[in-house]
């Protein structure tokens, strides 16, 4: 099972890197978003020749900025700081065949709730166990500074691949 962590700097534009992974995997995508609306992601995906139909959204941002009905193939969540709700919705989407889970981002969830390394690790362990049975893969995004800020050592240890788009871009 691929368990990738994308480590970004604040304001990095990493969406293209995410799309690169989506293209490589060829699986349908469960995109959990807290900082980009599904509409924005879909428009960007289409510009990058990734069909809309590949995406299902767990939308943790739209309800914060406007009242509207959900984009097709999405569910809005209103309890932004409830990992159980997020977990339940991810598992429902994966069961429908959206087996590449993109979680954008750990840093946003940390804002809403006083999470710690232990609660995040518990969430990840439960999710990864479920996904391994259904042959899913995951890509999580996190601000590099938050690893230290929130002491996320155990959280980090749950991933088996790391990408730093900033370093890739500048050849560091």
């Amino acid at each position: 099972m691929d368990k990738t962590l994308i480590l970004v700097k604040r304001y990095d534009d990493y969406l293209m890197r995410v799309f690169q992974i989506v293209k490589e995997h060829e699986k349908n995508v469960c995109y959990v978003t807290f900082n980009k609306t599904p509409e924005f992601i879909l428009e960007s995906a289409e510009k990058n020749q990734i069909p809309r139909e590949r995406f299902y959204f767990i939308d943790g941002i739209t309800a914060r900025i406007k009242s509207s009905s959900s984009t097709m193939n999405s569910v809005q969540i209103h309890e932004f700081d409830n990992l159980k709700t997020i977990d339940k919705n991810i598992k429902a989407a994966v069961s429908k065949g959206y087996t590449l889970v993109i979680f954008d981002s750990i840093s946003n969830v940390l804002i809403y709730h006083s999470l710690n390394d232990a609660s995040m690790t518990k969430f990840l362990d439960g999710l990864f166990e479920f996904l391994s049975i259904l042959k899913g893969d995951v890509v999580f995004v996190c601000n590099e500074n938050d690893i230290g800020n929130y002491s996320l050592d155990k959280t980090i240890s749950r991933f088996n691949a790391f990408i730093k788009p900033h370093a890739e871009l500048f050849g560091i």
């Binding site: 980009k36 609306t37 509409e39 924005f40 900025i65 406007k66």
Partner: peptide
């Protein structure tokens, strides 16, 4: 830093 579409921006 939230990314939204042009249509959403106009709506807001």
């Amino acid at each position: 830093a939230v990314r939204i579409s042009d249509g959403e921006r106009q709506e807001i």
